[in-house]
Simulated scan of single mutants.
Amino acid sequence: DGHVALDYLSGKLASVCTVAFVNEQTFQPQYYYHANILRSVFNEKLGQDFAILQITTPVGQALLPRPFPFLKTNEFIQRGDVVEVLGYSGQKDELTSATGVVQDFIGGYIDTTAEVAPGDSGGAAIDQNGNLVGVPTRIVTITAADGTHSTTTYELVDVRAVMNWLDTEGPNVHDQYFTHQDYARYHGTASFIDQADLGCEALARSLEVSSVFCLLPDGQRLAFPTDLTFFSWFPDFSGVIEISADSLAQYPLTRNTTFRPGTLVKLQTAPEVYVVTDSFGGLRHIPSEQKAIEIWGENWASLVRDVPDAFWTNYTIGSPLE
């Protein structure tokens, strides 16, 4: 449907922009189209910096002589798999590519040996079958304290992180924009996860307290204990209203919210990992790394969120996954 996922360039895009397609022989931009920015996020705390565009009308008379490029997604890339990073840094004024392998998964990023060039941010990283696995985002160079050597890593935003962000708009909203190479495996968790939302009538905070609350239709409220908990449910604070402390007090506090269903969590002071199964904080233990890889892929550990010890009692542990 003409959707494009890309790096948001630190929030520098306006509501509309121009997208260019390259000539297949020269690899230089030739076909230009208008595009609307449908969804975007820039959240430094979560490392989120991307947008979804929708291509609309052509600019000028030159039309792309083929259907828009279409990529399925592969959320189950493994360490050692070959990836190709495509970008347009402007250094050569043409589409460029770099090939490498996946090294590791850290905090929603994929470390690769494919040498991303400055300006390639927002391109595409594909596997050997042409499936989208991530979006090139940054180059990290760490120099030893004594200055004798440095190490450079090239990072991609894991496509699953983009999907998790889109799903804060509603259960499986990402399916409006992405097509899974293995739909059944990605959505296999549906058999044990209840995607019901919190049922908030409004999101509010008082002028005196920075905490955000979910105001329920029955006149009660839920508290978001941490920003990470809030961002698992909502993309940003734009929908939060400010009300007086007296008005907020009219809503009795019922409980704390928990991470959105489907989130992998662990207690900060314990190694066991669980999956949140409902909006009331139900948990099921993931009994082994093999089981985690089977369901979520090798990047499962980079998706885990820590729950502070003080809030662990908000959750209820059920039977482990089988």
Rank of each mutant, 00 (worst) to 15 (best):
L203F: 06
E75T: 07
S10C: 08
P136E: 02
V135M: 06
K92W: 13
I52P: 05
T26G: 09
R79V: 14
A35V: 06
G90K: 06
L303M: 09
F311E: 00
Y251Q: 02
T179I: 12
V159W: 06
Y183M: 10
E44S: 14
Q220R: 07
V209F: 15
A145G: 08
V22I: 11
G130Y: 02
T269Q: 08
P118W: 04
N36C: 14
F178N: 00
Y183P: 11
T26E: 07
I293N: 10
I55M: 09
P287I: 08
Q250M: 10
K291C: 11
A125Y: 04
G188V: 03
A245L: 12
P118Y: 10
V22G: 06
F237G: 05
A62F: 10
A270C: 04
L198W: 01
H34P: 03
P67V: 11
R66E: 15
D278L: 00
F224T: 00
E201P: 00
T113Q: 08
F234I: 06
R255K: 08
G134P: 12
T153I: 12
D309H: 11
F70L: 13
I139Q: 08
L248M: 07
A124Y: 04
G170D: 00
G239T: 05
P261Q: 02
F21Q: 03
E94H: 11
L53P: 03
F27D: 06
T189P: 02
A125V: 10
G60W: 08
N74K: 01
Y154G: 02
Y186C: 01
G123P: 04
R185A: 04
